[in-house]
């Protein structure tokens, strides 16, 4: 699977709460950030955790969030950011119409 998002795109992290080994931290689900880097394709660790091969590989991105988006009560500098890696299947384009579909 090739990358679907490009650096600078605004994306939303899916607000899902599945069981199992999950690499998208709980605190960032449902939050909106910007693609800061596109890292290539990697096997899905959520599948590999269950002894499956994790294929096909998924595009992996570094997403940058404003701290004030991650934590509405953030009391550091408003420009502070939080970066993390998100696999493609956790990303949604930040368009309300597609979001609800």
């Amino acid at each position: 699977m090739s990358a679907r998002f490009a650096i600078g795109d605004t994306v939303r992290i899916a607000e899902r709460y599945p069981p199992g080994h999950i690499r998208t931290p709980y605190y960032i689900r449902g939050k909106t950030g910007v693609v800061a880097d596109v890292l290539g394709a990697f096997p899905n660790p959520e599948e590999r955790a269950k002894a499956r091969d994790g294929l096909p590989e998924l595009p992996l991105y570094r997403i940058r969030f404003r701290q004030t988006e991650a934590w509405p009560d953030y009391d550091g500098d408003p420009g502070d950011t939080l970066d993390m890696e998100i696999y493609h299947h956790w990303l949604e384009p930040d368009k309300p119409a597609e979001r609800s579909g």
């Binding site: 500098d77 502070d80 939080l82 890696e85």
Partner: peptide
């Protein structure tokens, strides 16, 4: 004026 950037090392980097 220095921005703090936290990196949560949650995947393959």
């Amino acid at each position: 004026g220095v921005t703090v950037r936290v990196h949560d090392s949650n995947a393959d980097m």
